[in-house]
């Protein structure tokens, strides 16, 4: 009788241990439904589910010059402006690409700036299949978050079970201390995208 009870207790303990093990080892729901990464480097055509993206160049500047509603304006920053020029194309159907994040080497994410309201060539980009288009993402980043950064691009900010382009910014020209070699004093946003 006592052996029977002990066996029951052992089974219960084993079940608890298995449940605990599964709880701690299995991925969280948010990870299971989170972004599906598609990786690449600068100059690669990175193919997400609905769009294709290539990072052509990354430029840095201390000041952005824009003209909004016919008025010239300059925007300064405590860090640096990073201007990422990309080529975009839709895979199979017209799609909108609206979300980009500059992820620094420490894992900090910098979302595209919202300080530019009426400048053309900024997201959201609507792209059509067979008609690649060029665009720019503009970020404000601290100089220490440039070396080893990754660009994350997706259709929307919040999504589940969809792909996210993750481009390692491996083609940046940097000084030994990790800050960019070339920093323009002023970057004119009205210049056509090249």
């Amino acid at each position: 009788m006592i052996g029977h009870r002990l066996a029951n207790l052992a089974i219960l303990g084993l079940a608890a241990a298995i449940c605990y093990g599964m709880q701690t080892s299995k991925p969280h729901y948010a990870d299971l439904t989170g972004p599906i990464p598609v990786r690449g480097g600068m100059g690669d055509d990175v193919k997400a589910r609905l769009f294709q993206l290539r990072v052509d160049k990354v430029e840095f500047a201390k000041i952005l010059a824009v003209s909004e509603f016919g008025k010239d304006r300059t925007l300064t920053t405590g860090g640096l402006w990073a201007i990422v020029t990309v080529e975009l194309a839709a895979t199979n159907s017209t799609t909108t690409i609206s979300e980009a994040t500059w992820q620094g080497p420490t894992g900090l994410g910098y979302r595209e700036t919202e300080r530019l309201a009426m400048v053309s060539g900024l997201p959201p980009f609507t792209v059509e299949p067979g008609l690649p288009a060029r665009g720019r993402f503009v970020f404000e980043v601290p100089p220490s978050e440039i070396s080893g950064a990754t660009l994350l691009v997706s259709n929307e900010r919040a999504f589940a079970l969809d792909s996210q382009a993750r481009i390692t910014l491996d083609g940046l020209r940097l000084k030994p201390d990790g800050t960019p070699e070339m920093v323009a004093d002023i970057y004119d946003m009205d210049e056509p995208i090249q």
Partner: peptide, 15 residues
């Protein structure tokens, strides 16, 4: 309303 081609691509009205 869309346009769809034989290759399975489709286009929405342009903005």
């Amino acid at each position: 309303i869309t346009l769809a081609d034989a290759a399975g691509r489709s286009w929405l009205p342009t903005s």
